[in-house]
Computed example of a mutant assay.
Amino acid sequence: MNQGLSFYIVRDDLLHPFVNGNKARKLDGLLPLIEDHGVTDVVTCGGCQSAHAAAVAVSCAERGLKSHLLLRGEQPQILTGYNLISTIYGNITYVPRTFYAHREEMLQTHASMVAGHTGSVVYCSDIIDSSLASQTFECSKFVQRDAPRGTENHSRKVAIVNEGAKDAVALLGMFRLVDYLSQDHLLGKKRAFNFVVDSGTGTTAVGLGLAAMYLGLPWKITAVMLADTMDTYRQQERRLIAEFKRQFRFLLDSHKLNGANDGIVHWVDRCHPRKFGNVLEGEIEACQQVAQETGIPLDPVYTLAAWEMATRITCAHEDDSNVVILHTGGTLGMFGLAQRYKSYFGMLNTAIKS
């Protein structure tokens, strides 16, 4: 880091050894609902090195649920990183890319196969709508509660979780995080902060923005776009906000979110644009430098982008806000990158030896 340059960092990557920060937050509100409704199996999908798939596998195993993970492409010659964790904790099926392109049909077909003739299949939206009808959510502090597992007749009940868990229920975990961080002995409710977060689906950023608006916090959310265009991210933002208002209106004072439709996230391009998933020369070394100087692990696809943006904002002194990075995790993804970008990691090994 530059001399005298500083910003805050929320180490959400330390929540769990395998379930990275934003993945744990997205599942925070969803898994208790799944348990409440007697679900026995969970089906989801992702890339070969999907942090989401690994998070679902580990979290389900810890709760006594079975996970079924549909991973895009072919099985790697050597299992590493999130792929290895997913294989250990869940049931893996590798899906050809042509079939994976039709995700909804793929998930439905596999879930029906898991359920069998005597079981049933439900979508997360069905579970949430059912909860709305009976209002079984905890209505204060978003506190988890223990619930009975399984069903009386022991038939399988299979829940489908969308790729990346990019549904409105995922926002509840961000509400819990913001509520925690805004305590007086942490960030408080009066100081201005600019939260910088890397954005794959954009769900985490929208959750931060909604929670900050609801709690009346002077926080700005700067989201570094990684996987799509600004129009797509803004469309995703509008969809999540509308869905959240509809599904959780009885939990919240809706007037506190009146300004949400005008946009709550400041979407920005990453400092070095490229096709999602690609790594540029020098980025592996940049992650190495940050790790050696600060002890903080980054990955070049996700969290390095947030680090670079936070550095740029801090250097520019654009306003009086304190800059905060939400470290979303992703470090295990380095193992998968080492398989794809052998030359970059070979250069790193040479630098270490010298």
Rank of each mutant, 00 (worst) to 15 (best):
L172W: 12
L172C: 13
G173Y: 09
M174Q: 14
M174L: 15
M174V: 14
F175W: 09
F175Y: 09
F175T: 05
F175K: 04
L177K: 09
L177M: 14
V178M: 09
D179V: 04
Y180G: 12
L181D: 00
L181M: 07
S182H: 10
Q183E: 12
D184H: 12
D184I: 11
D184Y: 07
H185Q: 15
H185M: 14
H185N: 15
H185T: 15
L186Q: 12
L187G: 07
L187W: 10
K189T: 11
K189Q: 12
K189G: 05
K189M: 08
K189I: 06
K190Q: 15
K190T: 14
K190P: 04
A192M: 13
A192L: 13
A192D: 15
F193H: 15
N194W: 11
N194D: 15
N194G: 14
N194F: 11
N194Q: 15
F195A: 07
F195T: 06
V196N: 03
V196D: 01
V196G: 02
V197I: 13
V197E: 05
V197L: 09
D198N: 14
S199Q: 02
G200R: 04
G200N: 06
T201L: 10
G202F: 00
G202Q: 00
T204S: 10
A205R: 00
A205P: 03
V206A: 03
V206W: 02
G207Q: 02
G207R: 01
L208T: 01
L208S: 02
L208W: 05
L208K: 02
G209N: 02
G209M: 03
G209P: 03
G209R: 01
G209L: 03
G209F: 03
L210R: 03
L210D: 01
A211C: 07
A211W: 04
A211L: 02
A212D: 06
M213R: 13
M213A: 13
Y214F: 10
Y214Q: 08
L215E: 11
L215F: 14
L215Y: 14
L215Q: 13
G216H: 07
L217P: 00
P218R: 05
P218W: 03
W219N: 00
K220Q: 11
K220E: 11
K220L: 07
K220A: 04
I221C: 01
I221T: 06
I221A: 02
A223S: 13
V224P: 02
V224E: 06
V224T: 10
V224Y: 04
V224C: 07
M225N: 08
M225S: 09
